[in-house]
Amino acid sequence: MSMIISIKDSLRQSVEAATGGQVTVMYDDKGYPSHMCRIPMFTLDTIDPSWAAVPHPAFIVNGTTKSEIWVGQYPAVIHDSRALSLPGRDPAASIDFDTADARCSIKGAGWHLMTNAEWAAIALLTHKQFGPDTIRGNTNYGRDYVATFETAPRQDGANPGLASGTARTLTGAGPASWRHNGEPSGIADLVGNVWEWQRGMRLVDGEIQVIADNNAADNTLSTAAGSSAWQAILEDGTLVAPGTANTLKYNSDSGVKLAKVVTATASVNTQYKDVLAAAGTAAPDLTKALGLFPHATDMARGNLYVNNAGERLPLRGGSWHNGALAGSFALNLSYERSLALTLLGFRPAFVL
């Protein structure tokens, strides 16, 4: 059984004191620690007054509204087959989706691979509170591609900016501007460093499929290819069975377009803010709340990548060499769940 947050030890007390309680240390089934950042529940109208005054989907799990979610302050490292969120480490990489998923769920009840709904909630809230592109990161071989004076130690020992090698930076080693709230208490490395696998969303032959609300935070729920939990989205935001007529899809038509029909199959990418809906297709608020369609057009960082053939699992944030293509809204739907590359990582999360 997970020990979660009840242990009154010196590490937990020091982390909470240093962050005003915004970060705590949680312990998994084997007593291994993870630094976890609290994200309080907010309603959709907090982001856009025209949206419903209901909790963001990230705070609804199996029909129950949660007062908070906890997200790993750092990308995962792996110890004893378990994903840990710890500072100053080389983030785990070269890991496929299902393995990343297992490294989180094995930790005990409540632990899970970060979900797309959770990532989108943080990206939306940061954009609302601090403005567009406020999160910078390792997007240029150990430094930020614009603020090149912002650097962090590379795990390969090379100098920041040297365009060779494996330029992952140590977790949380960058400046405060590389954290979601611009403070030491923030979630680190959301932009750049490694693309991060996400649970609860996928693309199948171009059809956008999700697991309802944040039910994917339940680590007992299957996200396998044949899971019955997957649902497609109609343009009014209703969730229906995959393959239902007129569900929302990504079409490869002069870039990425939200559409009801796939007329072209290809690998394409478009700056996230510039993704449009095809003629006769409406983007429901749900797609915007889940970071699948732009709710605003003032972001200069982050692209949407799509390969609309077969099953593609989501990656978020960008990697160390993506420059402006990385960003808090960056979404990569190009890869199959079996892919493992040096620039693909992940992050644990927790919901009580």
Results as ranks from 00 to 15, higher is better:
Met1Glu: 15
Leu11Met: 13
Val15Lys: 03
Val15Ala: 11
Gly20Trp: 02
Thr24Gly: 13
Val25Leu: 07
Met26Asn: 07
Met26Tyr: 03
Pro33Arg: 03
Pro33Lys: 02
Met36Val: 15
Cys37Gly: 13
Arg38Ile: 00
Thr46Arg: 10
Asp48Met: 11
Asp48Lys: 10
Ser50Asp: 15
Ile60Gln: 08
Gly63Ser: 10
Val71Asp: 02
Tyr74Thr: 11
Asp80Pro: 01
Ser81Trp: 00
Ala83Gln: 14
Leu84Glu: 15
Leu86His: 01
Gly88Gln: 14
Arg89Trp: 02
Arg89Gly: 13
Asp90Gln: 13
Ile95Cys: 14
Ile95Arg: 07
Phe97Thr: 07
Thr99Lys: 05
Asp101Gln: 12
Ala102Ser: 15
Gly108Pro: 13
Ile122Tyr: 04
Leu125Val: 06
Gln129Lys: 08
Asp133Asn: 14
Ile135Asp: 09
Gly137Cys: 10
Asn138Gly: 11
Asn140Gln: 13
Asn140Ser: 15
Thr151Arg: 06
Ala152Ser: 15
Asp156Thr: 11
Pro160Arg: 03
Ala163Cys: 10
Thr166Val: 11
Thr166Cys: 06
Arg168Pro: 08
Pro175Trp: 01
Glu183Asp: 09
Glu183Tyr: 00
Ser185Glu: 09
Ile187Ala: 05
Ile187Asp: 05
Val191Glu: 02
Trp195Gln: 08
Gly200Ser: 06
Arg202Ser: 09
Gly206Asp: 13
Ala216Asn: 10
Ala217Val: 06
Asp218His: 08
Leu221Arg: 13
Leu221His: 03
Gly237His: 02
Thr238Arg: 02
Leu239Ser: 10
Ala241Gln: 14
Thr247His: 04
Tyr250Ile: 07
Gly255Tyr: 01
Val256Asn: 03
Lys257Gly: 07
Leu258Trp: 02
Lys260Arg: 08
Thr265Cys: 04
Ser267Trp: 00
Gln271His: 07
Tyr272Pro: 06
Leu276Ala: 15
Ala278Ser: 15
Pro284Gly: 03
Lys288Tyr: 00
Thr297His: 10
Met299His: 07
Ala300Lys: 05
Arg301Pro: 03
Gly302Trp: 04
Tyr305His: 07
Val306Asn: 08
Val306Gly: 10
Ala309Arg: 01
Gly310Tyr: 00
Leu313Val: 09
Gly318Lys: 00
Trp320Cys: 12
Trp320Val: 08
His321Thr: 11
Leu325Ala: 14
Ser328Phe: 01
Asn332Val: 02
Leu333Glu: 09
Leu333Arg: 02
Tyr335Lys: 04
Leu343Ala: 06
Gly345Lys: 04
Gly345Tyr: 06
Phe346Lys: 07
Phe350Gly: 13
Val351Glu: 07
